[in-house]
Design a protein around this nucleic acid. Structure first.
Lengths: 193, 193
DNA sequence: TCCTACTTGACGAACGTTCGTCAGTTATCG
DNA sequence: CGATAACTGACGAACGTTCGTCAAGTAGGA
């Protein structure tokens, strides 16, 4: 059994993701967990407070799921590991509500919370880039990929990741998604060899 | 001097882009053009009607600016023309409010208008893909790029475009943008040769 | 064990505000 | 005169938020 506050957060993630901050109402969220909107105030100070709690959890989920993947891999199989990362991202985003929330919010944050959100997003992106760049440096040193700057290869790969995220946001069918992944990946991989 | 209805549409684009459909109010838009929100009803049937008019114009702008570019180029210089397309996209998005609007709306449409919007977005994407695919076929025939399927190369390039759009949405500084463009482009170009 | 004191979570009612919308009126101009 | 476009005024509905209250559960001391 979940804590009531966790139930509320789960419902909030859902509605914030679908309708956005302004489009989601506390009444809606309350109804989802079987309570009136006033009762939410027993658990959170208000809409902003609820949103920021959800944001924090989504950030951790996003950061953890991205960084964890690269923690335990060696410097021997960039092709398998990079491609595996892309498919993992696709799987995660289709399953995990928090990642969809993070994506929407980082793209189009509610204006009065832009400052906070941009800071968090920047923090996450930086951490991911650092971890990934170390990996690419390893692959370059082991001559597994082309002898280019690790920074450039990292940015290029993150570009591929972004293009996949866009496809996920558009919510196209599985087939289109796979084609897009296949196309981007093959050209990318040929480009870094 | 603009028509008043065009002024309203221009203000609407601005606020819809910044605050989203739910976050933008007619009062705000009216104030921008120096009239009361009720007066907007002399020009549009309501908020949805205004939004859909704006959507239609943005679609045409988006479609035209993308397709026009490829109309008048030959099959001889893919490197110059493809890279030129990317820099043009960057320029346009930084100047043109309607393209930012289109981007936001196509990513996260207001739920009750999802049907209409998705249809328009799909229409545009298909048209762009067709035009681009013809170009790639020409380059393949002239042996200017790798002998792969035109469809795959098209999707891969559109992936690069998407990754640039993401960067534009994030609104990072000029330097980061150029680095990202440089990285994605170099790897892509190496990958299709 | 029983009474009390305090906490927790949810409630109805109401607050002030804003929302989109409609009706009726006034002013401008060909 | 008729048409157009702006205005004022008012509408119900929904918004986030605050208030006082009430039932249920917990803790502690006599």
């Amino acid at each position: 059994m979940l804590l009531k506050s966790d139930e509320i957060k789960a419902a909030a993630v859902k509605y914030f993701t679908i309708y956005g901050y302004e489009g989601a109402s506390l009444a809606q969220i309350g109804e989802e967990v079987g309570m009136k909107k006033q009762s939410i105030y027993a658990h959170f100070k208000g809409k902003d407070d609820l949103f920021l709690h959800v944001l924090q959890e989504a950030k951790e989920e996003y950061l953890y799921s991205k960084i964890k993947y690269f923690r335990d891999i060696d410097a021997q199989h960039p092709e398998k590991d990079l491609y595996g990362f892309l498919t993992m991202m696709i799987d995660l985003f289709q399953k995990n509500e928090q990642l969809k929330f993070w994506l929407r919010v980082s793209f189009f944050p509610p204006v009065h919370l832009t400052k906070v959100i941009d800071k968090e997003v920047d923090d996450v992106e930086t951490q991911v880039r650092v971890v990934l760049e170390e990996k690419f440096q390893g692959w370059i040193d082991h001559k597994k990929v082309v002898d280019d700057s690790a920074k450039r290869l990292t940015l290029a790969f993150l570009g591929v990741v972004d293009s996949i995220l866009v496809e996920l946001v558009y919510g196209n069918d599985e087939k289109t998604l796979k084609e897009k992944l296949d196309a981007s990946w093959r050209v990318f991989w040929r480009g870094i060899q």
